[in-house]
């Protein structure tokens, strides 16, 4: 039986019907065309599917779509206003913290969540926050540098 759920996605209220056996990841990609969210492992290991639910980073592959009823979701698509990138995105570009880009949306969302809860994270905090996000090409140095630079530029406000 399908369930009617209502939630806010990137600032917009949506109401849709979903099958309970659909993960949040699948709903975002297949029903809402938010394909910035990536599936790497589908098992909570890689973090490519990270989105914010009520401001907290979660693995969207480990959550059912029905569970977001009444909640607020932010994906990579909701970070920029359409013209200006988020300071974190700018910083990833500047530091070449991207190669294939597959891990990037998840990385940026984990970093965003970190800056939301701690506006002056230290290098260890960044590493802890990104520990659940795997990158198979860039190496982590540039990514950590990008986040720390965004903090310096006031990205954490």
């Amino acid at each position: 039986m399908k369930h009617k759920i209502r939630f806010t996605i990137n600032g917009e209220v949506k109401e849709i019907e979903v099958q309970p056996n659909k993960t949040l990841l699948k709903m975002l990609r297949e029903d809402l065309d938010l394909i910035g969210v990536k599936e790497g492992c589908g098992a909570g290991e890689c973090g490519a599917c990270t989105v914010l639910v009520n401001n907290k980073p979660v693995n969207s592959c480990l959550m059912l779509a029905v569970e977001v009823d009444g909640k607020e979701i932010l994906t990579i698509e909701g970070l920029s206003d359409g013209i200006n990138l988020d300071p974190l995105q700018e910083s990833f570009l500047k530091h070449n913290a991207i190669q294939c880009g597959y891990c990037t949306p998840g990385m940026v969302m984990s970093a965003k969540a970190l800056l939301n809860r701690n506006s002056h994270p230290k290098e260890e905090d960044v590493k802890e926050a990104l520990a659940g996000n795997l990158c198979r090409c860039t190496g982590y140095k540039r990514i950590v540098d990008a986040v720390l630079d965004a903090v310096k530029k006031g990205g954490g406000k």
Binding site: G44, P57, V58, G132, N133
Partner: peptide, 9 residues
């Protein structure tokens, strides 16, 4: 336990 994302759930 796990990653920060996992610990949120």
């Amino acid at each position: 336990v796990g990653s920060y994302q996992v610990r949120n759930r």
